[in-house]
Design a protein around this nucleic acid. Sequence first.
DNA 1: TTGTAAGCGTTATCAA
DNA 2: TTGATAACGCTTACAA
Lengths: 329, 329
Amino acid sequence: MASIRDVARKAGVAISTVSKVLNHYPNVSEETRIKVNEAIRELKFTPNTIASALSSKQAGRVALLVNLNTQTQAIDEIDMQYLSGAINKAQEKGLDVITVFFSMIKDRSVAEIENYLRAQAIEGIIIYGMSREDRVLHKLIEGQQFKIVAVDAPFVNQSTSSVAIDHEKAQYDVARKTLHENQGNRILYIAGKKNGFVTTQRLEGIKRLAAQEGLSLFVRQGDFSEKKARQLTFQYARNRDIIVCASDLMAIGAMRALQEMDIFRPVCGFDGITLMGYAGKQMNTVKQDFYRVSSEAMEEMGRLLEGGEGRAVVLDFSIVRMQYLDIIC
Amino acid sequence: MASIRDVARKAGVAISTVSKVLNHYPNVSEETRIKVNEAIRELKFTPNTIASALSSKQAGRVALLVNLNTQTQAIDEIDMQYLSGAINKAQEKGLDVITVFFSMIKDRSVAEIENYLRAQAIEGIIIYGMSREDRVLHKLIEGQQFKIVAVDAPFVNQSTSSVAIDHEKAQYDVARKTLHENQGNRILYIAGKKNGFVTTQRLEGIKRLAAQEGLSLFVRQGDFSEKKARQLTFQYARNRDIIVCASDLMAIGAMRALQEMDIFRPVCGFDGITLMGYAGKQMNTVKQDFYRVSSEAMEEMGRLLEGGEGRAVVLDFSIVRMQYLDIIC
DNA sequence: TTGTAAGCGTTATCAA
DNA sequence: TTGATAACGCTTACAA
């Protein structure tokens, strides 16, 4: 492996000059720049990121903190889109990425986690799927020791940005569309997990709709579980006209239950996962582009790392109906 | 951030002594070890992995090279299981992991890739989903510059191990079971992608069964595509008694086509993905534990990194029928 | 514009 | 068993 030393020797310049060329410093003559780049090419030199990180104290490493959906593999799709969106964008921006699961830092104190991350030379963290219960993460954010981008969680401070779609509006929109395409005014709303941020936001959305259109709104916690949604449907659907679910998985659970009950009720979901195409019946759902959300999160991380200050980034969504033939290929 | 220097000062010993304690060197007295560990605890010291890597030239970093299934998100599940299996095991073993997608190194030469990886201080690579066409990767393996574990690809040399289930036997077993549970001897076999290693191995399995049981075997390439399997089913299923598919996705495509044709044929799949639970009809399939496969791959990487030599690791599988109620939760 | 040299936080060699 | 000290490959004042 050629080192910066070899390049310097070959180009007949000092090591620091090579470094300057490498890092695009302004004060380098065109002549030497060319000489150096030639040497670099000839030696197939690639700078050692470890040494560079140690020296500059800037590793440009960001950790993806993922709350794996251990409940069901059917939505690994979401996490995978998150990961690939972030990783691809990171490579584009020359950032180094490591993936960390919530399970790995569970039960550790803030100080321990900070040390762990700092030892790994982590400068930034993108957090996916944080809930109100994750006290330690809240402290991590408050501490402002790291640049943080929170996906789907409303945290913003000097060194923290949030990235998300407008869940309130999305829930409102999809439910409204479903309502207007059908009859009835008694809604069964199957909500998400108790302390999730998106759960609250989506709930606000359906409440606004109900208030505005004078609907009878019956809310139950579904915990984002297909099974729970199934049970709730068996229990309450008969006396309701429309079933609005805070996730696709729950919508699928509800729809299958309805089929087994042999009654029909319009159902709508949220997320736009592929599985919706296999559900038999088509349903309205909010299509989030998870890949793009994550890609934007990494973009935002780049901004923060370069000294930008935290802000809230809001992305768009669309309302779709997913069907089998569009999904397979 | 406390450094090794601070620890040394606090414990009243030399830096090198602290380093020895940190790395569990033998020649340290019980007394100093305790003193040092106390200082470490009090200062909440965590060694800087960057500095350690630079100094020892051993970063213990391994790259996960993933061939993302861009075709369909329905099987992101597989990649996600691979990633989480590897990452969890890596943390357990104190290895640092980065994730790289095939798309990121596409069109680069072997030398470029080697440089890229070396610059990232990568020592080992776990490759998921390599095919015969990936010439560059073959060269990377032959070069033996890195420790490599190939998942589902039959490469073994001094510094390369392979990890996989016995695809030939698995295909044989699942097809045999399906055959014996039903009538008929005319098989439509929908194979995988042309140059995939597992495609060949699974094909061998069905051929052995056909030869052994005197079956009429009709083989078509399905490219692991649900749509292709659907087309092939429409085209050929009528004159066949049983449809054996080299993947679950294709099995689902075949099954739906049969339903639309309004005829019944037994179908079996391969992989054991969650989606099978939503297919309507239950089918036999080979259940691979992807999480475990990947976990074992990382374990094997650990062995190689410690100087062990390459070998073939064969994992087990099971034949299952997947149904909706088992899958939801 | 270029070069010299002092770090960055470890590990490892060799004396003590 | 311990401690100095020279690497590791790079960045960055500061000097020339």
